[in-house]
Amino acid sequence: MENFTFNSFTVQLEGLKVSKYSMYPVFLFFFFSYLFIMITNVGIVVLIFIDKSLHQPMYLLFCNLPVNDIVGNSIMMPRLLSDILQPPTEHFISYYCIECVVQAFTSHIFGTCCHTVLMIMAFDRYVAICNPLRYAAIMTNKMVIKLTVSAWGVALVLIGILLGLTIRLNRCRTLISNPFCDNASLFKLSCESVFINNAYGLTFTVVLLTSSIGSMVLTYTKITVVCLTSKNKSLNSKALKTCSTHLSVYLVVFLCGMLIIMLHRFPQYSDYRKVAAIVFHIIPGCLNPVIYGVQSKEIRKFLSRFFQTRKVLPSL
């Protein structure tokens, strides 16, 4: 299955092991999941853009999540859907020309931004609940832009270095044992020492998760203290709604990511790891707009007005 010519411009994806009987059900499941992700996330972005009542820091920062879901799934899912309907011997992908390296880059940007965006959203919730009188002065449009740029900028720089260290390696293999390209799969194609890649990747993962978990623990500890010491029922109710939404999204991302990390330690469960890697893209992309759509009073009001208008128009 492996070709030992050096630096081949084409590599082969192992893909999912799907029987001919389950091929179409699996394809339809992923297709409708992708369709749902695109419709709901694009809808959320458009809704926030056109409705001025949603031009608030909380929603503008949240808007980064659906954008991340759209980009991350648009690069990965179409190729996955195509490969499901093809035999494994035809799962070839170009290494450089847009496809494999870009796919790996965007998949890691997706995973990193899930954490960095949720971190800046946690800061917004902290200011809103712990410093409500100074919220407008702190969370200005300029601050929202700074937080957004920092969330994406940190991800772009860190992943740029990660993939840069991998691209420099010579390759002596062409088989990627994954349904899509990622950094670990790419540097495993090399017969050179990958110590630097492993060291940087491990350091990057530890720093990202430590920063992410640390910011959540610190933020929610302070918010909990404020809520317990405050007798303001309105503030506590608002804190419960907004924080439960944010924490739910974070736990979904965290648990999906940890599942992949744990399965990497068990090569015998490689098929489960492949499914977990796809699930990491699908589940947050499906749940994020649903969780925020259900919890957000402003979004529910907009959708209610929209559907009421649609009902009235035909009667006219």
Rank of each mutant, 00 (worst) to 15 (best):
S193P: 01
V46K: 07
V294Y: 13
L80T: 12
E99F: 09
I260P: 01
T205E: 01
G15V: 05
P87H: 06
V102I: 11
S82H: 10
L313A: 10
I44C: 04
I93Q: 08
C286L: 15
C181G: 08
G43K: 06
L47F: 00
L118W: 03
S53H: 14
L162K: 09
V252Q: 04
V312T: 13
R79W: 13
S193Q: 07
L47N: 05
L228W: 09
F30V: 05
T106S: 12
R125T: 06
P267T: 04
S8Q: 13
K274E: 02
S315L: 14
C191K: 04
R305N: 15
N236E: 02
L287R: 01
T148K: 00
H264D: 12
A104N: 09
Q56T: 14
K301Q: 15
S94A: 12
K146H: 10
M23I: 05
E298V: 11
Q86V: 09
K311R: 15
V249E: 01
Y135W: 06
R125K: 14
K231Y: 09
L313M: 13
L209F: 14
V249F: 02
V102D: 04
S211E: 07
T224V: 02
C227E: 05
E192N: 11
S304C: 11
H108M: 07
L65N: 02
K188F: 13
N73R: 03
F204Y: 15
V101H: 05
K297G: 00
S190A: 01
L16R: 06
F123N: 07
T148G: 12
T148I: 00
T166D: 10
D182H: 15
V71G: 02
K238G: 11
F36T: 15
C286I: 12
K274H: 03
A104E: 03
D182T: 00
D182S: 14
